[in-house]
Simulated scan of single mutants.
Amino acid sequence: MKRMMGGLAAWVLAAGVAVAAESPGVQVQTLMESSASWDGRAYEAYPPGPPLLTVLRITIPPHSALPWHTHPIPNAAYVLSGELTVEKQGTGETRWLKQGDVLPEMVGEYHRGVTGDQGVVLIVFYAGSRGVPLSQQ
């Protein structure tokens, strides 16, 4: 039954996007679709419990380094303005992001964001459950 409900929800969402795209003047552009984080590691599962969606607007000033942290849940960041370098602690791997880029974030891997001469404004979408933290240090 749970699988059937998930399939039904996906169909309803797809139908809603299709209807919106057929409306005059409406444009739909997929910014990101991923089942893995930016380092290629596949997402395993969502946390148990009723879903809780959270969207944050995060502003990071120039010449800042966020603390090393992990996420226990899948999330994605959209760069509204500015630039950001994301670093993976274990390997030193980096990814540079600019306005308009989207990043599927890592789950269970220590990483951080670092700004240079420009700050950055991010819109971050988290798919979790009530009581599950968005990030941990």
Rank of each mutant, 00 (worst) to 15 (best):
E93V: 11
A76D: 07
V86C: 09
M106W: 01
I123K: 07
A127L: 15
A127M: 12
G116R: 10
L122N: 04
G113F: 14
V107T: 15
G128K: 00
W96L: 14
V114G: 02
L84Q: 12
R112P: 00
R130S: 09
G128Y: 02
E93M: 04
G100W: 09
G128W: 01
N75L: 11
R112Q: 01
Y78R: 05
S81L: 10
A76Q: 06
V124L: 08
E109D: 13
G100Y: 12
Q118H: 13
G108N: 05
V102N: 04
T94Y: 03
V124C: 06
H111D: 07
V86K: 03
Y78E: 05
Y78A: 10
L97Y: 05
V121T: 15
P104K: 01
T94C: 06
T94R: 15
E93Y: 14
V121K: 02
G113V: 00
L84R: 00
I123S: 10
V79K: 10
L80P: 03
G100N: 11
G100Q: 13
V86S: 06
T85N: 14
E87F: 13
G92E: 05
E83G: 11
W96N: 11
R112H: 00
T94H: 02
G131R: 08
H111W: 01
G108T: 09
L122H: 13
G128F: 00
E93T: 15
F125G: 09
L97D: 05
V124Y: 01
A76F: 00
Q118R: 15
K98I: 13
V102R: 12
G119H: 14
R130W: 06
P104E: 01
V121E: 05
V124P: 03
T91Y: 12
E83F: 06
Y110M: 12
L103R: 02
T115W: 15
T115N: 05
G131I: 02
G131T: 03
G131A: 00
V114M: 10
Y126K: 04
R112T: 02
Y78L: 07
E109L: 11
V114E: 10
S129G: 14
P104G: 09
V124F: 10
V132C: 13
G113R: 02
T91S: 15
A77S: 08
W96S: 15
K98E: 09
A127C: 12
Q89M: 05
L122M: 06
E83P: 11
G108P: 09
V79M: 07
K88Q: 09
V120K: 02
L122I: 11
F125E: 03
T91P: 07
E87H: 07
Y126W: 07
